[in-house]
Simulated assay, not measured.
Amino acid sequence: MARQSSRFDYYKSRQIPELTVLQASLNDFSYDRHAHEEYAFGVTLSGRQDFFSGGEFHRSPPGNVIQFNPEQVHDGHPGDGSTLGYVMIYVPSAQLEASFADAAGCERAARFHGSETLLADPELRRAILDLAQWIIQRQGTRIDQEHALHRMATRLVQRAGKFQPSGRVSRPDTLLLRAKEYILAHLEANLSLDEISQAAHLSKYHFLRLFRQQFGITPHQYVLSCRINAARGDLETGVAPSVVAFRYGFTDLSHFNRRFKRIYGKTPYQYQRSVI
């Protein structure tokens, strides 16, 4: 019997519209390397989930939790020849800041970033799956869903131990942050490497070397990822895919479709229909 093709189902929370759940079944699909603006919390349900992130290759068997910080670069694909099933919840930083700070007893922990990408943690897994099921099945009150988020944030801080404020930001970090801010402020413009490296006060050579070293992708890949993330937001508000494609500099709708599908598994039109 032939295996079914890969499937991607997206759900928006009716209680907390900023939350998105992906329920996926992968056979013949591999994600391009990319990053999201939100936190992403996933649980591998079946098969094995293989991915590269943070300079390491990871293998996630059923039951494991995957956690990506905002803008953490990663890819992903089935790893053992069987169908990969998993759920992933995308959570904007603002939805977790108060919980992180409360769990750590430190207001500066609001921007907490986990150091673990692959976790075997039944308590965290249960909270993620509870929230995912409430959203998929359109159940639970807003406070139910907020409590699941709080459980997730608290467990992550507990695993990290005592919160330690980050040290002084290095000069390369500051310069690259300027570049990222410039990119995000000019997503609809015809960006060039010269403009971005100048915004960072770096030569093009040093900018390219530092950027890839710091973020694991090229500036071109980062710009593309940011444009796809912004396009996703526009699609969720009902903007036509053809308008979105033009807005963010894609050659045509076909080009936009290909790029979007390599990150979200669906064409822009299919994604829009699933969340509106």
Rank of each mutant, 00 (worst) to 15 (best):
A94G: 10
Q95C: 14
Q95P: 04
L96S: 12
L96Y: 08
E97S: 15
E97K: 15
S99K: 08
F100E: 08
A101Y: 06
A101M: 11
A101P: 08
D102P: 04
D102E: 05
A103N: 03
A103M: 04
A104E: 07
G105I: 12
C106G: 14
C106S: 15
C106R: 15
E107Q: 09
E107V: 10
E107T: 08
E107S: 12
R108I: 09
R108T: 09
R108E: 12
R108F: 12
A109R: 02
A109G: 03
A109S: 03
A110P: 06
R111M: 12
R111T: 14
R111Q: 13
R111W: 15
H113C: 10
H113V: 10
H113F: 07
G114L: 05
G114D: 06
G114Q: 09
G114Y: 07
T117Q: 03
T117V: 07
T117A: 04
L118T: 06
L118A: 10
L118W: 05
L119V: 04
D121R: 13
P122S: 10
E123Q: 03
E123P: 00
L124P: 09
L124A: 04
L124V: 06
L124S: 03
R125Y: 09
R125A: 12
R125Q: 14
R126S: 15
R126E: 14
R126M: 14
R126P: 11
R126K: 15
R126H: 15
A127M: 01
I128T: 05
L129M: 07
L129D: 00
D130F: 03
D130W: 03
D130C: 02
L131C: 10
L131A: 10
